[in-house]
Amino acid sequence: MATASETSVVPTHNESATKWWTRFLDPSERTLAVLLLAPAALLLALIIVYPVCRLVWTSFQNLSLTSGVPAEFAGLENYRLMLDDPVFWETTWNTVLITLITVPGALFVGLAMALMANLPFKTKWPVRLSLLIPWALPLSFAGLIFAWFFHSEYGVVNDVLRRLGFEGVIWFNSANWAFAAICLTIIWKTSSFMALIILAGLQTIPRSLYEAAEVDGAGRMRQFFEITLPLLKPAIVVALIFRTITALQTFDIPFTMTRGGPGTSTATLAMYIHQNTVDFLDLGYGSALAVVMFALSMCVTAVYLRMIRAKG
């Protein structure tokens, strides 16, 4: 009995001793994970969670730096104003339209570029380099360069058109042409990013699959639709997620090319947010607009994530 009680007592004592030490020297995996993640989580909270919360809070306020009046709580007033603001609807529609045109556009062009880059060239660097250059160019530079390309008097696009016997187009003097010029520029700028991700995907497809298909007598087209495309799907979905989110935030290219003109016909939601906060200094309304854009991006991301999960 005595020994039994002794043996039962000693381990308990030892256990509590280990518990005391675990906290410092030998933490359980869970505590370790928390400890290791804490700095990153804290940083994220500081640079993402806090600003987002602050943004949402500001969107419920009447806060305009030009009014000379201190901020006051306004409830949903900013959101109510948004509903009958024609420019909000126009810029939102423009943003959606740009997304609907340039995301598939960049996907097709990017896919074609990736397939070309994957061809067995002897010297690979010229192809790879031409893939990288548009991607490495800052967005606003691309916008400024293309604004010159599409300039009605000095632009190379009209020059080529005139040499081919067409009449030049005054690109930025018409809502439709200006929109087309912007979409073309965005597709040029972003398809190389799509191509890079798709190229990485292409290179993971084993050669043996194509050899087997050839033995079975499958043609080039058949190989593409039965092997290449299905195996590329994960890469394509990832590329689409990134591209769609950046498309919803389109700012630099229309800002540098047209400043939203003629009128407000090529202005995007991001530009309208910038205008309300930086130009009009109406931080309350600008924040409300930004919350809407944030919600829009979250919705799209959620849809894509669901798509991946359904496939995975």
Binding site: T66, G68, P86, N173, S174, G261, G263, F280
Partner: peptide
């Protein structure tokens, strides 16, 4: 104090009319 907004409304309207994306009547209404 909200001059920037007034200015933006006027100048985009002028710009839209001259580019022919809106008529003078529509522009004045908007």
């Amino acid at each position: 104090p909200r001059y920037n907004e007034v200015s933006e409304i006027i100048r985009t309207s002028v710009n839209a009319v001259l580019a022919g994306t809106t008529t003078p009547e529509q522009a004045a209404d908007q």
